[in-house]
């Protein structure tokens, strides 16, 4: 019922005091279609990567959790190839833990935490999960490779497409853009490989 009002407030909060390592903005003026970028935590195989997350806000929000999905390929036990995230806060009770007092910001934060701390006991990707459990070194390497390949490279491509759209918007994307530029400067590679999506 209060979806729009609430979303506006949340976006406001997201732009004024974004949670660490996270930026979020409206996608092409649609209030219920958001994009977020999560910076991989330091000391994780995702470090240095920028992971785009698609956020769809359902009509019944906040009585229903937002739908989030990784756009950037990520090698993670709880995130599948389609980017779907296995996170209790993204599901309604009794199976999930969504509650209206959560919000997009908190959910994004918990996703970031999930990235740093995978939960192999509730795997979405069984093979990655067992790798994480029993062969962590390999998992780390693979995850790092994926990060380099997709999360760092992709930024270039994303930057071009997203900047055009986000520029005109509420300027909330600016910090993200800057980050992206910095990152892409580091990982100067071709963006020829962004076919993963």
């Amino acid at each position: 019922m209060q979806k729009n009002t609430r979303l506006k407030r949340e976006l406001q909060m997201l732009s004024t005091e974004p949670p660490p390592g996270i930026s979020c903005w409206q996608c092409e003026g649609q209030i219920d279609d958001l994009r977020a970028q999560i910076i991989g935590c330091v000391n994780t195989p995702y470090e240095g990567g920028l992971f785009s997350v698609e956020i769809k806000v359902p009509e019944r929000y906040p009585f229903e959790p937002p739908k989030m999905r990784f756009l950037t390929p990520i090698y993670h036990p709880n995130i599948d190839n389609a980017g779907r995230i296995c996170l209790d806060a993204l599901k309604l009770p009794p199976k999930g833990a969504w509650k209206p007092s959560l919000n997009i910001s908190t959910v994004l934060s918990s996703i970031r935490v999930l990235m740093a701390e995978p939960n192999p006991d509730d795997p979405l990707m069984a093979d990655i999960s067992s790798e994480y459990k029993y062969n962590k070194q390999i998992y780390l390497e693979k995850a790092k490779r994926w990060t380099e390949k997709h999360a760092i490279q992709r930024n270039k491509g994303l930057e071009e497409t997203e900047e055009g759209t986000s520029e005109g918007k509420l300027g909330k994307t600016k910090p993200a853009c800057r980050k992206r530029e910095a990152l892409s400067a580091e990982g100067h590679q071709d963006d020829s490989k962004k076919a993963c999506l």
């Binding site: 506006k8 406001q12 520029e167 300027g171």
Partner: peptide, 17 residues
Amino acid sequence: YLFPCVAMENSDGSEQI
């Protein structure tokens, strides 16, 4: 209670749009 939000958005919008 709604006010602050509106004001913010407006200012944002006016800057860039």
